[in-house]
């Protein structure tokens, strides 16, 4: 079989394992969806007089989509690659004639399918349960697409790179800690500008803040751009930062990737 066909077969194997691991389904796939429902319910009162078309669900939707991007790409990758390196899955795959690229294609396939499914569920819940208006113009859908793809791609390569810092035993702590901190300082769970200024500056270095800002530009009213740090959506800069992280992540990933557990060669 050629590399692409093997990559697709790996995608199916990855999907089977992902779905059968209840914890991963809950903490990476379901979590943002549950949070959206929770936040939309808890904070609905605060948005009672926010004006027509504005609601808690609409306010939190961009943040939950961004959290989902981080969880399904970065978290899934970092955790699974660290575990597979330690438990010998990578070594076993290397013992076969499967080209290495097929392994990575399988991972990318898994992340693409789970993250798109998650996005679809988030949009469906927002639209059907909370009556959130989805973007009407092609421009916003296009922004959604490129922010999403750049975010996912960066998450995949940075997740693979990050996995080298973890072992199967430490993966939980080593991966979840930065994921949690990033979510809190990047304006995923509350308004970014309500975070202290120095923390905003730190968050601006990392991709999640830009994914969240890009998503807000897609789902929030144009007038709310003035509430952003720079007073605008900064889409050009978003593309630049996300693109730079994607390239940097790919380079780190290619130069540091290890197939074998430390101390076994």
């Amino acid at each position: 079989m050629n590399t692409v066909a093997l990559g697709w077969d790996r995608t199916l194997i990855e999907l089977k394992q992902y779905i059968r691991e209840k914890e991963s389904v809950f903490f990476s796939f379901t979590f943002p969806i549950l949070l959206l429902i929770l936040f939309a319910t808890i904070f609905s009162g605060q948005f009672a007089d926010a004006g027509p078309g504005m609601s808690a669900a609409r306010f939190f939707l961009p943040g939950m989509i961004s959290a989902g991007v981080l969880l399904t790409s970065f978290q899934t990758m970092a955790m699974s690659v660290a575990t597979e390196r330690d438990d010998g899955t990578l070594k076993r795959l290397r013992s076969t004639p499967m080209p290495p690229a097929a392994y990575f294609l399988g991972k990318v396939g898994l992340v693409l399918i789970t993250s798109l499914a998650q996005l679809a569920v988030l949009l469906a819940v927002a639209r059907l349960a909370y009556d959130v208006a989805l973007p009407a113009d092609a421009g916003r859908w296009w922004t959604l697409a490129w922010v999403f793809v750049l975010g996912i791609f960066g998450g995949v390569v940075l997740g693979i790179a990050w996995s080298s810092l973890a072992t199967a035993r430490s993966a939980g702590a080593v991966v979840i800690a930065p994921v949690l901190v990033l979510q809190f300082i990047s304006g995923v769970y509350f308004q970014f500008t309500s975070i202290p200024h120095w923390l905003q500056s730190i968050a601006s270095v990392f991709p999640l803040k830009w994914v969240a800002q890009g998503m807000r530009s897609v789902f929030l009213p144009e007038a709310m751009a003035s509430e952003e740090m720079a007073g605008s959506w900064e889409l050009g800069r978003t593309a630049l930062v996300l693109g730079a992280w994607a390239v940097a992540g790919l380079v780190i990933c290619l130069t540091t990737f290890r197939w074998y557990k430390r101390g076994t060669t």
Partner: peptide, 24 residues
């Protein structure tokens, strides 16, 4: 290999079928 793990969530048939595809 002397030790292997990491296949817990799959069935023997699934992993054998997938692995077979890598060989000519």
């Amino acid at each position: 290999l002397q030790t292997t793990s990491g296949l817990d969530l799959l069935t023997p048939r699934e992993i054998l079928t997938s692995t077979a595809k890598a060989y000519s």
